[in-house]
Amino acid sequence: MFQELDPLLHQQLRLQIITLLMSVESAEFNFVLAETKATRGNISVQIKKLEAANYIEVKKSFRDNYPLTTYAITEKGKLAFEKYVETLEAYINKAR
């Protein structure tokens, strides 16, 4: 019996964001925007969902008098991602 893939991560943009944040210590909004090639509005919506689940933390600050938003993955987010990848591997291995 397979475990269900985490529905929060099993969505393209949210998976893109969480994978990006797994690979870095922190990332700015513009970096996420450039790498995912999604719209600002869509990114904001998906970020809020990930933040509400405590998968990521959002920091707001200023740089050169301009607002700067940075994101970092939380321990809960790392565990969720690792579990997602394990489940994914099980699905793919079964399909082979």
């Binding site: 893939l5 994914l88 793919i92």
Partner: peptide, 18 residues
């Protein structure tokens, strides 16, 4: 999104942050 597509997204994002 299929499982294979998920894997492609993960690989692509990891490559981008190299």
């Amino acid at each position: 999104m299929t499982e294979q597509e998920s894997l492609t997204v993960i690989k692509e994002m990891i490559n981008r942050t190299r």
